[in-house]
């Protein structure tokens, strides 16, 4: 048993290194051009966002509609810091500061609101994200340049950073889930009363999941700021939170690999529909309804991809991607 776990670890590591090297080679040979790379950045940001929201909503069962709020904190913090200190260290410092700051706000918001259940929590987090947006737009406008937004944020994100933060975030989040603390979070989703009666401090774990989710959303925001070099508050509106939720729901609440698959799938759909943004949203909306009626568990349900499935799937995806490029 132990040996098997270790083997899976090594296999995962090899798969990660191979992925990294292949994409790096494709970038160096310009097969992945700037346009494809920007799609790749979007996919990676969405993977981090969806995995972190999945921790809150899919695993811990706390319905949050304000994830874009935490993303915006990471984005603005990193942008403001890198604009002052335009070095790699400024960027890394900004990213860490952004993530920590998002986590702190997550703690302040989570502590009182996580007592609420289900849809009340959803609405409270939605309100929280709207307030954060208004703060960035109207209150902190000396720092954020208000509704006009921040321009010319130095771009530090390259494939190496992108890969490090994406793979790192996903790995850390799945490590958390595969621990006693992660299981405690899942038990709250399953039955909060039973889990409290079994000695699980539900408030503590809900807040932990919420803060952790906020932290990684902050990282995603920082990557966004550093790659797309332009930020405005309206990007982080309610709709952005919904976009993240679509990925989580489509992939499967309670499946990190599901979130990864859905992030890629939806990025492909929206790339094809780029000329028709409304149609893209209409399809997202219809997807929600159809998934909930016909396959409420999403693509993966609460299962994770097993090793053999990963091999099979990466094989297929590789072919598909090759065809598209």
């Amino acid at each position: 048993m132990d040996k098997l776990i270790k083997n899976t670890g090594i296999n995962k590591l090899i798969a990660l290194i191979v992925t990294f090297v292949i994409v790096q080679v494709l970038i160096s040979t310009n097969i992945i051009n700037d346009y494809i790379f920007s799609t790749l950045v979007t996919i990676c940001i969405n993977i981090i966002l969806a995995a972190s929201l999945n921790l809150i909503t899919g695993f811990t069962g706390q319905f949050s509609l304000g994830h874009a709020g935490f993303m915006s904190i990471g984005a603005y913090t990193c942008a403001i810091i890198t604009l002052r200190y335009s070095t790699v260290w400024g960027f890394v410092g900004g990213l860490v500061a952004g993530a920590v700051f998002a986590a702190m706000v997550g703690f302040l918001v989570g502590l009182p609101t996580l007592r609420l259940k289900g849809d009340y929590l959803a609405i409270a987090t939605l309100g929280m994200a709207e307030i954060i947006k208004i703060l960035f737009r109207n209150v902190l406008d000396d720092l954020t340049n208000g509704a006009a937004g921040l321009r010319g944020i130095p771009q530090f994100i390259n494939w190496a950073w992108l890969f490090l933060f994406t793979a790192g975030s996903v790995l850390l989040i799945s490590n958390f889930i595969n621990s006693s603390h992660g299981r405690a979070c899942i038990s709250i989703r399953e039955d909060e009363i039973a889990s409290e009666a079994m000695g699980v401090n539900s408030t503590k774990y809900k807040v932990t999941a919420f803060v952790t989710g906020a932290f990684f959303a902050g990282i995603a925001g920082a990557i966004y700021a550093s790659y797309f070099y332009y930020l405005k508050p309206d990007y982080f509106a309610f709709k952005k939170s919904i976009d993240i939720l679509v990925i989580v729901v489509l992939g499967g609440m309670g499946s990190i690999s599901g979130s990864v698959i859905a992030a890629i799938l939806l990025a492909l759909i929206s790339t094809y529909l780029q000329a028709f943004p409304e149609l893209n949203m209409v399809i997202n909306g219809a997807l929600f309804v159809i998934i909930m009626i016909f396959r409420p568990q999403g693509i993966m349900g609460s299962k994770e991809l097993s090793l053999s499935l990963i091999k099979k799937w990466t094989g297929q995806f590789g072919r598909k991607n090759g065809g598209a490029a």
Binding site: R183, A184, I186, E190, D191, M198, S302
Partner: peptide, 21 residues
Amino acid sequence: IRLFKDLTVLDNVRIAMNKNV
């Protein structure tokens, strides 16, 4: 019966041990 229905038998028991972790 308030088991964690969608979790495995093992996880049901392990969750009860979380407080000692």
